[in-house]
């Protein structure tokens, strides 16, 4: 009869887009970095079934310093949307002060002013020459923006997972994502409630 400690912290991310964009892989790499290398508790789930191949696809990660009870998201802290459909479908699952990161190559209508747009697909296709690594560019940006993962560990986890011979490309994609994210002033984004302290 042992009891788990009460959950004190819980950080929830969702990687979304269409099947084939590599979002589950990105989420698995992220979870491996956080769970195996950073040593935190992590729970990774995903949409399962026909929609995972084409159509909407999502993968979720819950991070905590203590054991995780409910494995799926309850109130998202971070949403990555790699296309318009995913952005529209999942925006309202994000808490008001959560971060919305979109692929600005593919998402045209922004549902909020509190949003970060980075052209992941464009970077992958035109700079790196391989559209398929857009997910890894996005992963770099997610890692940098959420500040929940050691970025060196993220790269380590990435290199463990990717096929032999593609390490350089993937690693470069990840670094490009991190660079792009560094340009973003997160604290300068619009907020849901402006407190008195903030107004001063």
């Amino acid at each position: 009869m042992n009891a788990l400690k009460t959950i004190t912290d819980r950080y929830e991310l969702r990687f979304s887009g269409s099947g084939g964009q590599g979002l589950i892989t990105a989420a698995v790499v992220f979870s491996e970095a956080v769970g195996v290398y950073d040593g935190k508790y992590v729970c990774q789930t995903q949409s399962y079934g026909p929609e995972a191949r084409g159509g909407k696809s999502k993968a979720e990660v819950v991070i905590s310093e203590t054991p995780i009870d409910y494995p799926k998201s309850l109130n998202l802290d971070f949403l990555l949307a790699m296309n318009q459909a995913a952005c529209d479908a999942y925006f309202y699952d994000l808490n008001a002060d959560g971060l919305l990161l979109v692929d600005s190559t593919l998402v045209e209508q922004y549902p909020t002013s509190r949003i970060i747009g980075i052209p992941f697909t464009d970077i992958a296709k035109n700079e790196l020459g391989k559209e398929v690594v857009a997910n890894m560019v996005a992963l770099g940006a997610v890692g940098r923006l959420c500040q929940k993962v050691n970025l060196e560990n993220l790269e380590k986890a990435l290199l463990q997972r990717v096929p032999k011979g593609t390490e350089k490309l993937n690693s470069k994609a990840l670094q490009r994502g991190i660079e792009e994210a560094e340009k973003i002033d997160v604290l300068g984004l619009p907020r849901s409630i402006i407190t008195d302290d903030d107004e001063v």
Binding site: G35, V36, Y41, V42, C43, Q44, T45, Y48, K72
Partner: peptide, 8 residues
């Protein structure tokens, strides 16, 4: 749910 959840 358990089958496809990843945890460490």
């Amino acid at each position: 749910v358990v089958a496809h959840t990843r945890e460490c």
